[in-house]
Design a protein around this nucleic acid. Structure first.
Length: 113
DNA sequence: GTACTGACTATTA
DNA sequence: TTAATAGCCAGTA
């Protein structure tokens, strides 16, 4: 399939997540102006090319858990990258209360769309 | 067109 | 806290 404008919005937002912080798929969709389309966020990440160098590891599900198949290469890569940024991962889960990104109004105003 | 699937979520038990 | 469920919406067959 071919990436569309919505995918690009998701990618743009992912690129803005600060190191050491995480967001949920649903949150990404909301920020992109696509409320209720968390699955679209997940699909956008799957479609993303490695050459885009997106910090996709900073995206978790609404429970703070990694949504990739447990034990897979990508899963382990995500855990490693999160820990490298100082994020505490226990059993594939992150405490959203401690690490979830809360964009300020100022940050939201800098969004390119 | 139907049916199934998935890097999702909110609700309920 | 985990698990089942129903709703969700694009993509795929």
């Amino acid at each position: 399939m071919k990436p569309n404008e919505n995918h690009h919005r998701i990618w743009t937002l992912v690129a803005l997540i600060p190191p050491g912080k995480v967001v949920s798929y649903g949150q990404l969709a909301d920020l992109a102006g696509l409320p209720g389309r968390a699955r679209l966020a997940g699909r956008a990440l799957k479609l993303a090319s490695p050459s885009q160098n997106l910090p996709w590891h900073r995206v978790l599900n609404s429970q703070g858990k990694i949504s990739l198949q447990k034990g897979s290469d990508a899963y382990q890569r995500q855990v490693k990258r999160l820990q490298e940024e100082g994020i505490v991962v226990i059993g594939g889960k992150v405490k959203l209360a401690d690490f979830q990104w809360q964009p300020s109004l100022g940050e939201l105003l800098t969004l390119p769309f």
